[in-house]
Design a protein around this nucleic acid. Structure first.
Length: 815
RNA sequence: GCGGGCGUAGCCGAACUGGUACAGGCGCCAGAUUUAGGAUCUGGUCGGCGCAAGCCGGUGGGGGUUCGAGUCCCUCCGCCCGCACCA
């Protein structure tokens, strides 16, 4: 009988569900293991790209349960966001309806995978019972000053009519992440979360085991730099000065010019009449360039002298002031000191405008000749007045101290990280629970009035304007303090708010008293293993760390980090090697694959492609190989032995025992190390070996039964359905294979009895001999020197050394 | 430009801390079975020379360290991913 996946898979999925086999009980005495994989956006159809992180995650979950853990593998839907609202505008479907229909479809597709999702814990973030707690957290943060409103220039996508977070603006041309439209700046009153208050703590990764790549991305994103901010007086203008930030106060004596950002407020004040035309032309050019696409990759650094001079506060030397667009108003103070000898950009600028380039940090071994490029390293201070002769790192601190002491500057830490702008001028998100009252000002919605629910009867306009702004029933409200007529905030929250704490909601998804049950958090949290794409490195993965730290400071949890281990899988590509996309027509629909080959085949194939963190192209032929493998396993167990064939190679019981234990060891180590491709390769080798044994007398005894059972036990986490069917229906074992203890291996038996000893002469393989694995170094040496093939190469030579690598090789070194 | 990763058969890939390069799969070749096709099974499959035993070459190129290098170091080339004037 051939293996029929569709019947078998449906049967066991129904049985597992009926038995609540996948439910993770709270407070179970077993050690807990919380495995979280990033929840999907309900875009409509499940893509094979969704399966790629999920199938191996499920395999790990199943494996861990077999190792005695109480494993929780929850699933939910990241249900707020722009596509639902666009569907509403374009097709007149309400976002809620669109989203819930998609979720229904995706839930069904997810079930076909046969993963051990604990559906009793499912969450849907657009449900008021979920987003109520977004609002609750927001109010808690507002009380603590961690949520605030400010007028801010925001990046605005004119096509989507929405605010974008800094992270959602991509590339040099500053385009909208979603639609590619160049973004514009707009000044709006916006709500922010004060993530910068945690910037330093977020740089500390000592309590988590995350990939270096993600740690580096986050570190660069936070962009901490330590330096000094100090005032530079303007020559001939008593009382007028501007502030600059530098990370190199030790180079201050090398300043030969200053630069103000074109938008700096002092530019208009300081520009002399003779320079005004040129300066204004430059400002105009700079303003246009930031709005228009700044596509010029090799743009030369340029600027304009404004006619005024600044005084170096340390040396009293006057230096010219320029405007240049390489200085950004948004970072530091919008003004810099120009030290060409020790800053690459300043060096280029000074070269272009013929400014002097005096060396103030002498590189080791410097001969006094002019520098050909900026020197950025440490050295000895020169041309720096009283600081001459000091090592630059000492001078750094000395000058900083002196600036502070003289009242012209202070030590400062600057970050690239800005506060998290959560306001979105959209409908399909969590309403920000704030009311504006003419008398009382900004008033938080009282906790007992939560949730602020989205009105269902919203009108979606093709202009993309938020329906909330025109919805009188939503907009008009009595002030909670004075009862006077007041207006609601119409902005909704960034969807990254939802995903910042969703891992907690899985613990008690139906709790209507609090966001999560702290007792359950004590049992389950933090997440032991998180899996998902690296594209979330600086958004979701930073925000969720921030959120947990806030929760800790609110006294809600007692730990600092939400997820202990993180694994970023690679991307599955189309058969043409390109990213899967509808426009390329290279998208693989998992439903079709499941129908044709079964879920187990698809799961195993995705794991077999290659290393999980590398991804790779889909190969339609490759899946045939997996289907054949499973068919062979099926036949191996279900079909009677055909005693026709003679054994190709004689096998002894000890050899079969070796294969059993060796395979257990390999599969165990590979799953522990997330190397699913080699785990499957090991199972293939084992199955092929058993196939060779099958027709022989060795296949009669209990050892054969053990071998076959082991194969199924090891296959189970990877291909759960076929394993269950074979286990229960064909091996007559007790249901379920998924709760059987993981097989243990005997290291003695897993080691080969006899090994091939490689014999080398001067590092070249000259012979191979089979010897007892336990051979001593001395015996190995003797075997090597006795080999005729080795001796052939020793003729007339002197043996200078014999290197023995136990269990592997002997290398005879001759001269 | 800066930072990170990668380069192994026709293709996807394996190779523990430096120790037999290429496991497993795909593809291909041959054979078995079959009326045929498909499916399945068995064997082979890095290149060169050779009837063979075997010898020589081979992990992007070049150089180095080492008894021994895919693995370590230097250098160059190519591909991918981040960040893009962050003072």
């Amino acid at each position: 009988m051939r293996y029929d996946p569709s019947t078998v898979e449906r049967k066991w999925q129904a049985r597992w569900e009926a038995d609540r086999l996948h439910h993770a009980p709270d407070f179970d005495p077993r050690p807990k293991y919380y495995l979280l994989t990033m929840y999907p956006y309900p875009s409509g159809d499940l893509h094979v790209g969704h399966w790629y992180p999920m199938a191996p995650s499920d395999a790990v979950a199943r494996y861990k349960r077999r190792r005695g853990y109480n494993v929780m593998l929850p699933m939910g839907f990241d249900a707020f966001g722009l596509p639902a609202e666009n569907a509403a505008i374009e097709r007149g479907i309400h976002p809620y309806r669109w989203t819930m229909d998609n979720i229904d479809r995706m839930r069904r597709q997810l079930r076909s995978m046969g993963a051990m999702w604990d559906w009793e814990r499912e969450i849907v973030t657009c449900d008021p019972s979920y987003y109520k707690w977004n609002q609750w957290f927001f109010l808690k943060m507002y009380e603590r000053g961690l949520a605030y409103r400010a007028l801010a220039p925001v990046d605005w996508c004119p096509k989507d009519n929405t605010t974008l977070a800094r992270e959602q603006v991509v590339g040099e041309e500053r385009a909208c992440e979603r639609c590619g439209t160049p973004v514009i700046k707009k000044n709006l009153e916006q709500w922010f979360l004060k993530i910068t208050a945690y910037a330093d703590e977020l740089l500390d990764f000592s309590k988590i085991d995350w990939p270096e790549r993600v740690r580096t991305l986050q570190t660069n994103w936070i962009g901490r730099s330590r330096g000094v901010e100090f005032a530079i007086p303007v020559q001939g203008r008593p009382g007028v000065s501007f502030r600059v930030f530098t990370t190199r106060p030790d180079t201050v004596f090398g300043m030969t010019f200053c630069v103000l950002a074109p938008e700096h407020p002092l530019v208009d004040v300081l520009t002399t009449p003779d320079r005004r035309r040129e300066v204004e032309a430059y400002q105009y050019k700079a303003a246009r360039e930031s709005d228009i696409e700044r596509l010029s990759t090799e743009k030369e650094r340029d600027g304009v002298f404004i006619g005024a001079y600044a005084i170096n506060p340390m040396s009293q030397a006057p230096v010219p002031i320029y405007v240049a667009d390489y200085v950004l108003l948004t970072y530091g103070t919008g003004a810099i000191m120009g030290v060409p000898a020790h800053d690459a950009r300043d060096f280029d600028f000074a070269r272009k405008y013929g400014l002097p380039i005096p060396v103030v940090i002498a590189p080791p071994g410097w001969d006094g000749s002019p520098l050909q490029e900026a020197y950025l390293g440490p050295g000895t201070m020169v041309n720096s007045g009283p600081y001459d002769g000091l090592p630059s790192d000492v001078g750094w601190e000395r000058i900083a101290d002196d600036m502070v002491a003289r009242g012209i500057g202070e030590r400062k830490v600057n970050y690239r990280l800005h506060d998290w702008l959560i306001s979105r001028q959209r409908y399909w998100g969590t309403p920000i629970p704030i009311i504006y009252c003419e008398r009382c000002g900004t008033v938080p919605v009282p906790y007992e009035d939560l949730p602020v629910v989205l009105p269902e009867d919203a009108e979606f306009r093709p202009t993309g304007e938020s329906p909330l702004r025109y919805h009188q029933g939503f907009l008009n409200v009595a002030c909670p303090r004075c009862r006077a007529p007041a207006r609601r905030e119409t902005d909704t929250m960034d969807t990254f708010v939802d995903s910042s704490w969703y891992q907690y909601r899985y613990l008690s998804p139906h709790d209507d008293q609090r966001p999560f049950d702290p007792e359950k958090a004590r049992y389950w949290m933090p997440v032991d293993q998180y899996t998902g794409g690296v594209e979330h490195a600086v958004m979701h993965l930073l925000y969720t760390r921030f959120w947990t730290k806030v929760m800790r400071d609110l006294g809600l949890v007692e730990f600092d980090e939400p997820m202990i281990r993180l694994f970023n899988q690679g991307t599955i590509l189309g058969a043409d090697g390109n990213k899967m996309s509808k426009s390329r027509g290279n998208v693989v629909n998992p439903d079709e694959i499941v129908q044709q080959y079964g879920a187990d085949t698809l799961r195993a194939y995705l794991m077999f492609i290659g290393p999980w963190d590398e991804g790779g192209p889909w190969n339609p032929r490759g899946i045939e190989g997996i289907a054949r493998f499973l068919a062979r396993v099926w036949a191996l167990i279900t079909e009677p032995a055909t005693p026709v064939r003679e054994p190709t190679a004689p096998m002894r019981p000890r050899d079969l025992e070796y294969w059993i234990h060796r395979t257990i060891r390999r599969v165990t180590d590979d799953i522990e190390g997330f190397r699913f491709n080699t785990a499957i390769a090991a199972l293939m080798e084992f199955a092929n070996t058993l196939q060779r044994v099958k027709g022989t007398p060795l296949a009669q005894g209990p050892l054969w039964d053990e071998a076959v059972r082991t194969l199924v036990l090891l296959l189970a986490p990877l291909c759960p359905h076929i394993a269950e069917e074979l286990w229960v229906e064909h091996l007559g074992q007790s249901y379920s294979v998924h709760v059987q203890p993981w097989p243990a291996y005997d290291p003695q038996k897993a080691a080969a009895e006899r090994i091939t000893l490689v014999l080398q002469v001067n590092g070249r393989v000259r012979d191979r001999v089979e010897v007892e694995a336990a051979i001593s170094d001395q015996q190995a040496r003797e075997v090597a020197l006795a080999s005729p093939r080795v001796r052939q190469y020793l003729d007339g030579k002197t043996v200078t050394d014999v290197i023995v690598v136990p269990g592997r090789l002997v290398n005879v070194v001759v001269r």
